[in-house]
């Protein structure tokens, strides 16, 4: 474990005249992990990335990189910048060939020319663009340009890779490949990866470390398995009715129309068809997706009602769950978190 987080932000504020773009009292990004930055457009994701990439000094506050204060000028600035690389949301490729672009970081670092071709080839292979070296960037499609930009960042083997909306210009067929690439960069190169997206589900598919930004502020941890409906039933265990007429029992003491979430960690799984089906909040479904990350397994269970479930690795191993298995999802009414209640 790395005791020093990749980034630690304290009382960071970024402003342009007359407007505050970002206000982060306290935030950390762990070293060696994938973190996601989620938020709508204009939430301050790019502003935060530009600070983390040391391109814009914050108006106020302190930024630490690996436990030491970050620098925004002087020789230390260059030294730190060479460990952190940002891939812009709409990346700019320099005029010339793909090779010239991908080798750029090696050239400015004064790396010997002999290592450029293998490093460029390796980076291009990672983004499925092997053999593209001699293409002129002007002839690339938008998606290819995006991947060249990622390869260009990978070629310098940064400690931290910042990806600003990497999925924005990627066609649907390539999204899962790019998701796999992000995990691969993290595993194979050991890089800390921070990416932004406005798709919360996507963020959670890749990491459990999700930071939500709303209007320049870090919002409470993003929620999953969100349901809403009118509270029905009197007494100790009222319920709401969700799509398809299914009931989700919730804790007592709420009424009106509620929005609630079921934390993925609070959900238990067991094989379908077994005993013990008498408890409430049981839903059968099929495992359609699973990803292992940091000792935890994220699963997607699709059925009449779909759930995302997080299991500790040990529990996952014990149950011997496989993709395509039919399982029963269950959780207690007390586990349902009420996010909002309107009369």
């Amino acid at each position: 474990m790395n005791p020093n987080p990749a980034f630690r932000l304290r009382q960071i504020r970024q402003e342009i005249p007359g407007r505050t773009l970002l206000e982060v009292p306290e935030l950390e990004f762990p070293t060696g992990e994938v973190s996601a930055l989620v938020g709508p457009n204009g939430a301050g994701k790019t502003t935060l990335f530009r600070i983390l990439a040391l391109l814009d000094p914050p108006f106020a506050g302190a930024l630490e990189f690996r436990g030491e204060p970050a620098a925004f000028s002087g020789p230390r600035w260059l030294e730190l910048r060479r460990r952190i690389t940002l891939v812009h949301q709409t990346p700019f490729l320099f005029r010339g060939t793909v090779f010239q672009n991908v080798a750029f970081g090696l050239r400015v670092r004064g790396e010997p020319q002999a290592i450029w071709p293998p490093r460029v080839a390796e980076a291009l292979e990672l983004v499925d663009l092997g053999g593209f070296q001699d293409r002129f960037v002007i002839a690339l499609s938008g998606g290819e340009a995006q991947r060249v930009a990622i390869a260009r960042a990978l070629a310098v083997q940064p400690e931290v890779l910042l990806l600003d909306e990497p999925f924005a210009n990627v066609d649907a067929g390539r999204i899962s490949r790019l998701e796999a690439l992000i995990s691969e960069i993290n595993h194979r190169l050991g890089a800390t990866v921070i990416f932004s997206t406005h798709n919360l589900g996507q963020a959670f598919r890749l990491t459990s470390r999700v930071v939500t930004l709303v209007a320049g502020k870090v919002a409470e941890f993003g929620h999953e398995n969100i349901f809403s409906g009118a509270v029905e039933g009197e007494g100790a265990e009222p319920w709401i009715t969700v799509r398809g007429g299914w009931r989700i029992r919730i804790g007592p003491g709420v009424s009106g129309r509620v929005t609630c979430s079921v934390p993925p960690e609070a959900i238990a799984l067991r094989p379908a068809g077994g005993p013990g089906a008498s408890e409430c909040n049981c839903f059968e479904g099929e495992i359609t997706r699973m990803e292992c990350h940091n000792g935890r397994v994220r699963l997607r269970v699709d059925g009449p009602v779909s759930f995302r479930v997080v299991l500790p690795d040990q529990e996952f191993q014990r149950q011997g769950i496989r993709l395509g298995d039919r399982v029963v999802v269950s959780f207690t009414p007390a586990a349902v978190k009420i996010l909002e209640a309107k009369p």
Binding site: R50, A53, L55, L78, R81, R82, I84, T85, L86, H88, T90, P91, F92, F94, F104, G105, V108, R109, R152, A153, V156
Partner: peptide, 12 residues
Amino acid sequence: RVRPTALTLGAD
């Protein structure tokens, strides 16, 4: 974007 791109790729 040229300048920030060059900077983030390690240019002085």
